[in-house]
Simulated scan of single mutants.
Amino acid sequence: MAFTGTFEHNLDAKNRLTIPSKFRTALSGGVYLTRGVEKCISLYPSETYEEMAQAALAGINPLSTQGRELRRVLYASALETELDSAGRVMLGPKFLEHAGIGREVVITGVGECLELWDRSAWEAYDTDLAARAPDLTESLGHPA
């Protein structure tokens, strides 16, 4: 399943985020929360994250500096968890701090995972991305 679309939600008082119902079946086997490269939180189905991490580490010497650092990037900040019976996921303080998320959250589908953004940060990023999209697609060899 490709995760697509953009949804606006609010955290509840216990920092739980309700995941859109159309994604819950795909996430029923558990999820990984990770710090996004940008100021967001990535939410992967467990199997997808495990496969992605293994593929990223394939062929890299685990004793090399880069191998050790990549393992830390992939595993030290990742949290394996699951959706509760109401389709919510708990977001811990370190994840919220990394993403600068207050109460208003945007959930964006980015193919293999969902990204969780602070609403105002997403709006600024999305505006910038839309302006850069023609140049981005052209630089990748796709016509605008």
Results as ranks from 00 to 15, higher is better:
40 C>N: 10
54 Q>M: 14
64 S>D: 02
78 A>L: 02
139 S>F: 01
68 R>E: 14
140 L>V: 06
19 I>N: 03
112 E>C: 03
81 T>C: 12
113 C>M: 07
31 V>S: 09
60 I>W: 05
120 S>E: 15
44 Y>Q: 03
30 G>F: 03
96 L>G: 07
53 A>M: 04
113 C>I: 00
132 R>W: 12
58 A>V: 08
51 E>D: 13
131 A>D: 15
34 T>K: 10
111 G>T: 06
93 P>W: 03
34 T>Y: 07
17 L>P: 01
57 L>E: 04
138 E>P: 00
107 I>P: 01
91 L>E: 11
113 C>P: 06
83 L>I: 07
112 E>H: 14
74 L>T: 02
35 R>A: 07
128 D>S: 12
7 F>V: 04
95 F>H: 06
4 T>R: 15
110 V>Q: 05
113 C>K: 08
7 F>P: 01
32 Y>L: 07
96 L>C: 08
90 M>P: 00
109 G>Y: 07
115 E>P: 08
69 E>F: 09
84 D>H: 06
75 Y>N: 13
64 S>G: 10
20 P>E: 04
138 E>S: 15
79 L>G: 02
140 L>F: 10
49 Y>V: 01
125 Y>K: 13
27 L>H: 01
128 D>N: 09
88 R>I: 08
4 T>Y: 13
98 H>C: 08
13 A>I: 04
1 M>Y: 11
104 E>D: 15
121 A>H: 09
19 I>F: 01
110 V>W: 07
58 A>P: 08
99 A>M: 09
3 F>E: 05
102 G>Q: 14
128 D>I: 06
33 L>C: 02
107 I>G: 03
76 A>P: 08
40 C>E: 00
79 L>W: 09
87 G>P: 06
53 A>K: 01
1 M>F: 05
129 L>K: 11
104 E>G: 04
141 G>E: 04
136 L>D: 05
117 W>N: 01
8 E>M: 02
122 W>Q: 10
4 T>G: 00
136 L>N: 06
71 R>K: 15
78 A>H: 12
78 A>V: 12
84 D>A: 12
10 N>G: 02
80 E>V: 04
130 A>L: 15
79 L>Y: 10
5 G>M: 08
25 T>G: 12
109 G>M: 05
35 R>S: 14
11 L>S: 07
70 L>V: 09
86 A>I: 11
64 S>Y: 06
110 V>D: 04
81 T>D: 12
30 G>D: 10
5 G>R: 08
24 R>K: 01
54 Q>Y: 07
134 P>Y: 11
133 A>W: 14
89 V>R: 07
140 L>S: 09
100 G>F: 08
39 K>G: 11
117 W>F: 14
34 T>Q: 13
20 P>V: 09
73 V>G: 05
64 S>A: 10
122 W>M: 03
22 K>L: 11
45 P>Y: 01
20 P>C: 13
55 A>P: 11
17 L>H: 03
139 S>D: 15
13 A>D: 15
3 F>S: 00
87 G>W: 03
89 V>G: 01
1 M>R: 12
71 R>H: 15
12 D>I: 11
118 D>E: 09
130 A>P: 01
109 G>D: 02
42 S>L: 11
96 L>I: 13
87 G>N: 06
11 L>I: 10
67 G>E: 02
33 L>Y: 00
20 P>G: 05
